[in-house]
């Protein structure tokens, strides 16, 4: 017995969703346009002014926290809805039979909007290959999906402005596209584990995606907010708290002497340090904030951030089940080199 809601009930529910989204959007806009007033008000009510170090630090905290949380909630809700249009099965169908080059660009871009969790990296990897997606194109997707995601972009935008966020987006995609192209050129299919090579020749997926209506999409947006914002808010508070402390107290250029632009070994050191570390985009932000606040060069810091998110020891261990050591080493090497270049280019240009 399946209790399908009637059409009428569905229409009512859709309308309710639209009305709530409208109301929340208005509230959101009102709150977002009064961020400074809010911080001023909090500061005034505890009797501090921005002239003191502690006042300045608190003002920073009470301005940035609501700002970043508002941005994050809004964008994550939208992404939750967008992701319902890009089930992995759909992305795979879009990529199957695409030529190298076009395929790499498409794969890296789809990596942003396809829902991805590192624990399904391997099934996804095999699923793509089995549908005839070329190895290099699959890698472009696998590199872009964790690295270029909405949480990283929103946090960079909220804390460092749209230019840094746009650069991260552009360079992250470039690393994913170029690394995938290089791995594709190296013709490393024989370094897949044997059982994967066997799967590679033809297998049809039995899973059929259900039709999705707008109520489901809205619910997906809401659930995405619950999952993501619910998980990352402590990191964000820690990051902004740290940033506030630096903002108020630590002298600028404290880090410049050993993580500044003129230190040639800073970028490779940052990448080497970042590769074995593992955390999500939100977890890395407090560190990024701290480093940047103390005068570390932006390229060095972004290279560190990309290395931490894109390459990690746990991921390598999971990938080992499908890739032979030589392909894993190539993957890590190519991506690390790409990130290294990004770091240097950044430091040179800015």
């Amino acid at each position: 017995m399946d209790m399908q809601p009637t059409l009428e009930a569905k229409a009512t529910l859709t309308l309710r969703w639209l009305l709530s989204i409208g109301a929340v959007t208005l509230l959101w806009l009102a709150a977002y346009s009064h961020l400074t007033e809010f911080a001023d008000f909090i500061l005034a009510s505890i009797g501090l002014t921005r002239q003191t170090a502690s006042g300045e630090a608190l003002h920073f905290f009470f301005y940035d926290t609501p700002k970043v949380l508002l941005l994050l909630t809004g964008i994550v809700f939208l992404m939750g809805i967008i992701q319902t249009f890009f089930a992995p099965e759909r992305t795979r169908a879009l990529l199957a039979g695409k030529r190298v080059g076009v395929g790499n660009v498409l794969a890296a871009s789809l990596g942003i909007v396809t829902p991805f969790c590192s624990c399904s990296a391997v099934p996804l990897f095999i699923g793509f290959l089995s549908a005839g997606v070329p190895l290099g194109v699959t890698f472009s997707f696998l590199i872009s999906a964790p690295m270029v995601n909405e949480v990283a972009l929103v946090l960079l935008f909220g804390m460092f402005g749209w230019k840094v966020a746009a650069l991260y987006l552009g360079l992250g995609l470039s690393v994913a596209i170029v690394s995938g192209l290089v791995i594709g050129q190296l013709r490393m299919e024989k370094f897949l584990e044997e059982w994967v090579q066997q799967i590679q020749n033809g297998q049809t997926a039995t899973y059929v995606t259900e039709s999705v209506d707008w109520i489901t999409r809205f619910e997906a947006g809401r659930d995405h907010v619950k999952n993501i914002v619910g998980k990352v808010w402590p990191y964000i508070l820690a990051g902004i708290g740290l940033g506030a402390g630096i903002h108020g107290y630590v002298p600028e250029d404290f880090m410049a002497s050993f993580m500044g632009k003129d230190v040639w070994w800073a970028v490779p050191a940052a990448v080497l340090l970042g590769v074995p570390m593992y955390t999500n985009a939100a977890g890395i932000i407090p560190i990024v904030e701290a480093l940047l606040g103390k005068g570390a060069a932006l390229g060095t810091v972004l290279a560190f951030m990309m290395a931490v998110i894109a390459l990690s020891a746990p991921e390598m261990i999971i990938l080992r089940k499908v890739l032979k050591p030589r392909l894993i080493a190539t993957f890590a090497g190519v991506v690390a080199t790409g990130i290294l270049l990004v770091g240097y280019v950044f430091n040179l240009v800015l």
Binding site: P123, L124, G127, I199, Q203, A205, Y207, V322
Partner: peptide, 12 residues
């Protein structure tokens, strides 16, 4: 993993 893949499931 091999058993999972035999069902054609891509996202766990």
């Amino acid at each position: 993993l091999q058993a999972i893949m035999s069902y054609g499931v891509m996202s766990t």
